[in-house]
Design a protein around this nucleic acid. Structure first.
Length: 192
DNA sequence: GGTAGGATGGGCT
DNA sequence: GCCCATCCTACCC
């Protein structure tokens, strides 16, 4: 499969849940490597206490309140970086955590960045693994997803996907909210 | 097959 | 000082 067009800003300028669901099956590209997004989570504004934006605008969370279609990348547990896509119109909080990807292009490149991964299924089957495989760091925080080296494209041959909805993983607040979206049956997700 | 525990540092109280 | 939107290893069935 090859790449289609870059997703426009209007794609991201919608509700966070819509964007999280529609990102499934899209192609995430960074430099020489790319894969199909198979697992996402929505982090909402307002009363979603699991979101970093819940405490308002700070140096870290500023990008989440900014214009949609930008990357929010942060350090978690002192060691790993997580990639999010900013959604909602400017001024409103909301972002989508990219949790897992099916490797498609640049697989040898990604294997070098993920020496611990034994199987193809382990390359990007988690938010920290995915950023390692793609070489994404906080240097990409705030990057414009509609141009440059980090973009999301439509697939040229879209697959019909069935979406499984579950609670989000690894959080304490709002632990039962149904905001995790996975491609049902896909073997590259972090867990079914 | 499964899970408990440790690594490790930034953000915020 | 406490809390993490995680991953890997060791160890145990």
């Amino acid at each position: 499969m090859a790449f289609g067009r870059i997703l426009a800003r209007a794609f991201y300028e919608r509700s966070t849940v819509e964007v999280a669901k529609d990102l499934l099956g899209k192609v995430l590209v960074h430099g020489p490597a790319a894969g199909i997004i198979v697992e996402t989570e929505a982090y909402l504004g307002g009363d979603d206490l699991a979101s970093h934006s819940a405490r308002g605008v700070t140096d870290r969370t500023r990008v989440i309140f900014g214009p949609p279609g930008h990357a929010y990348v942060y350090l978690v547990y002192g060691m790993y970086e997580c990639l999010n896509m900013v959604a909602e119109p400017e001024g409103q909080a909301g972002c989508v955590l990219i949790r897992a990807m099916e490797p498609v292009f640049g697989i040898e490149h990604m294997r070098k960045l993920r020496p611990n991964a034994k199987k193809l299924e382990d390359l990007a089957s988690g938010p920290g693994k995915l950023t390692l495989a793609l070489g994404i760091t906080r240097a990409q925080n705030g990057a414009d997803l509609t141009k440059g080296g980090l973009v999301v494209r439509a697939p040229l041959e879209p697959r019909r996907v069935e979406i499984l909805v579950t609670p989000r993983i690894g959080i304490r607040h709002c632990a039962d909210w149904p905001l995790r979206f996975v491609v049902k049956g896909n073997r590259f997700v972090s867990k079914q």
